[in-house]
Design a protein around this nucleic acid. Structure first.
Lengths: 223, 223
DNA sequence: ACCTGAACACCGTTCAAGT
DNA sequence: ACCTGAACACCGTTCAAGT
């Protein structure tokens, strides 16, 4: 395999993936088009197919690159619960910065980013002292929770303008909950106030902690 | 509002939603097209727009109908944990029978089906004796886990033929895990065998139970 | 009020032809 | 080896025209 010198404006898989990421960030999930991408790179749409098999592969590669940058490797001295929280928050922040990652992550099974995520969570679950038979279930519970929140955040971002006011959106949804039929929706009504004032990131972390408690309680492990 | 007698083959929102559901079940998520749907109903694509605003509304309505049929109301004498498990399994089974429901449920925020789900889980969380301040987080954790698994199952169904052999797919993925670099993927390698033999539904339920343990432990509640 | 179907403005992807 | 861009086979959606 010989890498020959190239013109600076030559196409490459890396440049394509970067441009796709920029397009997705700027325009949202609907903004990534082979035509728009080609225009961005000063070529025709067909040129991209020389470097990338199809749109799915492009999305997978872009997701992979973002998560590799954002999800931290396990810190040296971190306890397993801290490491798990760090991974979970890394995914959360990646999706907050690039909502399309949340969609992509829940769309293609057995993609590399998903495997790495499961691996990292699993390693820490093991380090937590969870018995072998319960490790798979415990790591799966964490992963599925992380993915569920991620998909939801992605959907929320898709539903509103990129620059939309966060508090306004929450307020509107909270108002909708408060206005529901009391006979049918007593719970939603009762937590409408909490929805309005809640901190997304903190609540996400609370959920992770709750699952961690469940894991260690079930396993008889010691935090 | 007067309902006038119609010809039996007249279009109606209900007939359209039913046909869309049938099409999605038979052909998968890519099978729902306004042209295909119109052909199925012996009309032109434009006719559908008289009864339904757009494709999103159609998908939301179909999802809503399926979940209303499949997710059971709380049984009279059921304990809160049993009721939560019943709701969770209802969603699981709905998505197993109609994988597109899993995609749809994680795609549009604040759709009615999602609200009802959160309400049902929340009511049982409250019945569990969880203090008011922790109810929102606890119900969210359950919902996000359920949605995460649902989205993943939908993605798996999308990736394979409708008639594909379940064991064969699991076996292939397990083999892939077993063949990964031992230095980088020790956890995935170690659980590859569990993946091959695991029962999806049982593991899902184990995850729900794990979160329930976390909820009651955090709340100091009594099951 | 409800239906028809041609037409519009897009897509992802392919492929002969170029360099 | 790599790029070009017209062309193909689709989409969702609209809308004048019909009944």
């Amino acid at each position: 395999m010989v890498t020959r010198p190239r013109r600076d404006d030559a196409l490459s898989r890396e440049r394509i993936v970067d441009a796709a990421t920029a397009l997705l960030d700027a325009e949202g999930e609907g903004g990534l088009t082979f035509r728009a991408l080609a225009a961005h790179l000063n070529t025709g749409p067909g040129a991209i197919y020389w470097h990338v098999a199809n749109k799915g592969e492009l999305l997978t590669a872009a997701t992979d690159a973002v998560l590799n940058r954002t999800v931290p490797a396990a810190a040296a001295g971190a306890t397993p619960p801290d490491a798990i929280r760090a991974v979970a928050l890394g995914v959360f922040d990646a999706i907050e910065a690039h909502p399309w990652v949340g969609t992509q992550l829940t769309h293609m099974p057995s993609q590399p980013a998903l495997r790495r995520l499961f691996e990292r969570l699993g390693q820490q679950v093991r380090a937590l002292g969870v018995p072998a038979a319960a490790q798979f279930t415990s790591a799966s519970a964490l992963l599925n929770y992380v993915l569920g929140v991620g998909a939801q955040n992605a959907a929320n971002a898709r539903a509103h303008q990129p620059g939309a006011d966060r508090g306004e959106i929450l307020g509107a949804e909270a108002a909708a909950w408060a206005g529901l039929d009391p006979g049918e929706y007593p719970f939603l009504r009762s937590v409408a106030g909490q929805l309005r004032e809640h901190d997304d990131r903190q609540q996400y972390l609370d959920g992770v902690n709750l699952i961690l408690v469940g894991i260690t309680a079930c396993a008889g492990g010691h935090t």
